[in-house]
């Protein structure tokens, strides 16, 4: 017996009111990135050859469609944002040259700015650590970055023995990378482009 709070019919396929669709994000993409989603032919060539489509929760073609349907909230929370490898296959194959990697960057930036949690926290942690390196030192020291990443994610021994130690003994890891000098210049760039205040 359905309880009194359970509706007799579930609205899985409740009609979308076309005239209530919010197109502002589509317009924003056009204004800020010069990407016109009205050129999309809905052919699926983007998602058909996408490197990671098999693990995407929302495929490239669906990303374009959902923007046009005004469903941006679900895009800002999607897992695909953090599994897209920016391999540029989709944009080069798109018969309308729609720059989907740029759309993904744009969505990620909006999500990050609005502090919407990343479904793959470790990806965001890695990005942030890397940017921290560049902000402080102007360059990235890969060995230290990997160590910090392990500390931060609590996976202390990730890659330490294999391939970490192997790399160390092969002399791959360079503890003496040349430092950048005018670090105030990169700090200025970070300060002036900061997305999250404080």
């Amino acid at each position: 017996m359905p309880s009194s709070t359970t509706p007799m019919t579930a609205d899985f396929f409740k009609a979308i009111k076309l005239d209530e669709i919010d197109n502002s994000f589509q317009q924003e993409l056009l204004d800020n990135c010069g990407i016109d989603l009205n050129t999309c032919l809905e052919c699926g060539k983007c998602s058909g050859g996408c490197s990671n489509t098999h693990i995407f929760d929302i495929t490239a073609r669906q990303v374009v469609k959902l923007i046009k349907m005004g469903e941006v909230d679900s895009l800002l929370k999607m897992d695909s944002l953090w599994t897209c490898v920016s391999c540029q296959l989709c944009v080069d194959r798109c018969p309308a040259s729609i720059d989907i990697p740029r759309i993904m960057d744009y969505l990620r930036e909006v999500a990050y700015k609005n502090q919407i949690p990343a479904t793959r926290e470790q990806v965001l942690v890695f990005h942030e650590l890397m940017l921290g390196h560049i902000e402080k030192g102007g360059r990235v020291e890969e060995g230290f970055l990997a160590m910090e990443f392990n500390l931060k994610t609590g996976d202390y021994f990730k890659d330490v023995f294999d391939p970490g130690m192997k790399m160390f003994f092969k002399g791959k890891v360079n503890p003496f990378t040349p430092k950048m000098k005018k670090r105030d210049e990169t700090r200025r760039i970070f300060k002036m482009t900061s997305l999250r205040k404080g």
Binding site: C43, G44, S47, C50, T53, T59, R61
Partner: peptide
């Protein structure tokens, strides 16, 4: 051949 069946919404 890699493609998407766009009616099904799945890679094929």
């Amino acid at each position: 051949i890699r493609a998407e069946d766009t009616l099904r919404g799945m890679p094929i």
